[in-house]
Nucleic acid binder design. Structure first.
Lengths: 203, 203
DNA sequence: CGGGGGCGAGAACGCTCGTTCTCGCTCGGT
DNA sequence: ACCGAGCGAGAACGAGCGTTCTCGCCCCCG
C-alpha cells in the first residue's frame, strides 16, 4: 500500500468508500484498515468530509491518469484517440469491483449537504469534460466543442448504465454511438450550410 | 397529499428521500411528515428497505407517466416523439428541486446492499429502456434497437450531467446529439450494406 | 352495557456513528 | 539524567438510527 499515513488513509478510504458507500463506512473502519491512529487521522483531515473530499481528489487524479495513459498508448488518429476513451471505459466496467462512477455515487448519496464533496465532484466532471474537449479539438469537424459535449454525455450515460445493469454492453454501445456521431460530424465537414441542412432533412 | 396511509407515506418518502438521500432520512421523519403511526407504517412496510423500494416503484410509475404524457401530447412523427423525450428531460432538469435520477442516486448510495432497492432500480431502468425501444421501433431506420440503446445512453448521460453541473444545458446538448444520431441513421437507410460502409469510411 | 381487539403515542433497546478526551509512554534536547 | 511535548490506544460522549414493546384509549360486536 501507500507509504505515508495520508497515502495509506486514502488507499483504505478508496477501497471502502467506493465499494460500500460513504455513509455506510465509519471513520474507524478506514482508520483501522490504514493502520493510522485516530488522532493522526484527525490532524490530517479535520472531519470526515475532508477525508472524503481528499479520497475523491485522489481518485480523480488516478482515474484520469489511467484513462489518458490508455488513450496515449492505443490512440492513433484523433478519431482513434476519441474512440479509445470508450474502449477504456469498457475495460473499466469489466473490472470485478466496478460499481459505477465514484463521483456520481458520492453526489447521489450526499447531494449538496457536503460542500467539499460537491466541489470535488464538480472538479472531476469539469476535468473529464476538459479532457474530452481537448481530444475533440483535434478532430477535423466543425464545432469540435459540440462533439466533445455529446461524447461526454455518451460516456456518462455508459457509466450509469454499466453500473446499474448487469450486462457490460454499455461501453460497446456508447462506442458505436460515438463513432456514428463522429462520422456524421465528419461527413458534414466538407458540406456547407444549406447543403448540410438539406441533407439532414433528406428522405 | 394522498388519501390512504400508504399514499401519504409514499408522498412523504418521495419528498424526503429524493431531496436529502435515503440514509440521511430516518423512518421517524417520514412517519411524522405523513402523519401515520409507527405501528401502521411497519404493518404496511415491514422494514425501511420495503418502504424505500415502494417509494422507488411509485416514483417510477409517476415519472414514466409524466414522460409518456408529454411525448404523446407534443410528439408528431416518430422522430419528433423521440426528440420530445429530450425536451421533457429539459423541463424536468429545470424543476427547482431537481437532484438527478432518484434511481441512480439510490443505487449509488446503497449499491447491492439492499436487494429490494436494487431490483426496483433495475426495473425502472429496464422499463425506461423498453419505452425508448418502443419509440425507436417506429423510426424508419435500420437497427432501431441500436438507435434506442444509443439514445438511452444519451438520456442517462444528460441526467447525470444535469444533476452534477449547475448549468442546465445538458438536455439541449443531448437533444442535439440525439437528432444527429437519428439523422445519421436515417441517411443510412436508403443505402445498403457496402455502400453505407464506404460512405462511413469516406473522407 | 360490557369487554376485548386493535390502534396511536411514544418510551425503550441495542447499535453505530463522528468527534473529543484521557492516560501512559516514548523520545529528543539540554 | 531529566522533563515536557507529542503520540497511540482506546474510552467516553452525545446524537441518531431501525425496530420492538408498553400502555392506555376508543370503538365495535354481542
Amino acid at each position: 500500500m501507500g507509504r505515508t499515513d495520508a497515502e495509506r488513509l486514502l488507499g483504505a478510504a478508496e477501497a471502502l468508500y467506493y465499494t460500500r458507500g460513504i455513509r455506510a463506512v465509519g471513520i474507524d473502519e478506514v482508520r483501522t484498515a490504514a493502520g493510522v491512529s485516530l488522532k493522526r487521522l484527525y490532524q490530517l483531515y479535520p472531519s470526515k468530509e475532508h477525508l472524503v473530499a481528499a479520497y475523491l481528489d485522489a481518485r480523480d487524479v488516478q482515474w484520469r491518469g489511467r484513462l489518458a495513459d490508455y488513450v496515449a498508448r492505443h490512440g492513433g488518429s484523433p478519431r482513434d484517440r476519441m474512440l479509445a476513451v470508450f474502449d477504456w471505459l469498457g475495460l473499466w466496467f469489466a473490472e470485478p469491483d466496478f460499481r459505477g462512477c465514484a463521483f456520481i455515487n458520492a453526489f447521489g448519496e450526499l447531494g449538496d449537504s457536503a460542500p467539499l464533496v460537491l466541489a470535488a465532484v464538480r472538479r472531476h466532471k469539469d476535468l473529464f469534460r476538459a479532457y474530452l474537449l481537448d481530444l475533440a479539438r483535434d478532430l477535423d469537424v466543425p464545432d469540435p466543442a459540440g462533439i466533445g459535449e455529446h461524447l461526454l454525455l455518451l460516456a456518462e450515460g455508459a457509466m450509469t448504465a454499466a453500473a446499474v445493469l448487469p450486462e457490460p454492453r454499455a461501453a460497446q454501445q456508447a462506442g458505436r454511438a460515438a463513432a456514428a456521431l463522429l462520422d456524421a460530424a465528419a461527413a458534414e465537414r466538407p458540406l456547407r450550410g444549406v447543403e448540410a441542412a438539406v441533407r439532414r432533412r433528406g428522405a
